[in-house]
Design a binder for these strands. Structure first.
Length: 319
DNA sequence: AAACTCTTCAACCGCAACATG
DNA sequence: ACATGTTGCGGTTGAAGAGTT
């Protein structure tokens, strides 16, 4: 069964031969593609227009970048995917010379596995529950890591005096300290309302991190304030993480040594270089210097993965 | 060396949105 | 308003090559 556009004609399918490529390139270079449905006839090809279009876009276009993806490109894909999900065409727009098909294939063959091996759900970028991770581990040959990054902030931020630029540390926890608990969802039906509510009210717990992060203001689209609290909230009052898909699991009370270690982490985070922040300090993240890595760990994974596609479109990705 | 399994990625499929008459 | 054609997209398939037994 061929495409609807070419059911009347006899068309060739499958891989393209160099001769066919040559015909297509010559035709489009000389005349442009115009209406794709007319291209096969004009170019002397026994293909349907759809197939010609695909071949040109994914393989023959002169502006295509060939070869493996760089680490930088990979990071862009991960970051943008975290926000947009499987919108390959949108993601590809952030990678000059790459096609949606290429990005999709790279995701499915490489990045997906990499995230799984790090204990992250490739759909949501949240941490997998213990059960999910266990089942994944059984099928993943390369998941021998004893710890993984759960909170990776690379953004620049200013302290309350608006003077000090900081780079927050990466905080990792060993596997045996990872736990997840689902907050019972009483989600309003309107995703925009849910998003607004999350931004304005909800407390986000970067799972496994010693930071308790609260969005305290979102009045301006170009800036977001994030407040850092102490550990106690997370560990005792609301020991939980937003995770729409997670299986509910019990959180064990931390041991005395664990608490001490967490307190040390807390102090480390508040002590950046020579500058010491109050543990309840607020940091304002400017839109211009807002790194996707921050988005990753705070806003998105926690608040937005509830099918907020309409909100995503309004996000205005202007790199 | 042969058989089998796994991985990659080009190409296909079906659907939705849009354009045109 | 409707029918038809075109374009673009995301999910899926399967051939080919690489790796393993």
């Amino acid at each position: 069964m061929g495409h609807r556009c070419c059911t009347k004609q006899k068309v060739k399918r499958g891989l393209w031969s160099p001769e066919e490529d040559d015909k297509l390139v010559k035709h489009i270079t000389a005349h442009g593609h115009g209406s794709w449905s007319s291209v096969p006839k004009l170019a002397g090809l026994q293909r349907c227009g759809k197939s010609c279009r695909l071949r040109w876009i994914n393989y023959l276009r002169p502006d295509l970048k060939r070869g493996s993806f760089t680490a930088e490109e990979e990071q862009i894909i991960i970051d943008v995917h975290r926000i947009l999900g499987n919108r390959w065409a949108q993601i590809a727009k952030h990678l000059p010379g790459r096609t949606d098909n290429e990005v999709k294939n790279f995701w499915n063959s490489c990045i997906k596995k990499k995230l799984l091996s790090q204990g992250l759900d490739p759909k949501t970028h949240n941490l997998l529950s213990l059960r999910q991770r266990a089942s994944n581990k059984a099928s993943c040959k390369h998941s021998q890591q004893s710890s993984f990054t759960v909170f990776n902030i690379t953004s620049q931020a200013r302290d309350t005096n608006n003077t000090v630029m900081m780079a927050a540390p990466v905080v990792t926890f060993p596997d045996n300290q990872t736990m997840a608990k689902q907050i019972p969802s009483s989600e309003p039906p309107n995703p925009n309302a849910a998003y607004a509510q999350n931004l304005n009210e909800s407390t986000i717990h970067p799972y496994g991190s010693s930071l308790d992060t609260t969005i305290v203001s979102s009045s301006s689209p170009s800036s977001t304030s994030i407040q850092l609290h102490g550990l106690g909230n997370m560990l005792y009052e609301n020991p939980c993480i937003w995770d729409a898909n997670a299986i509910v699991e019990t959180i064990e009370e931390p041991s005395a040594e664990g608490l001490q270690s967490l307190q040390q982490d807390k102090e480390k985070i508040c002590q950046i270089g020579t500058h010491k922040f109050d543990t309840d300090a607020s940091f304002e993240i400017e839109g211009g210097s807002f790194d996707l890595g921050l988005l990753e760990s705070t806003l998105m994974s926690a608040a937005m993965y509830r099918d907020l596609s309409c909100t995503m479109d309004d996000f205005g990705w202007n790199f």
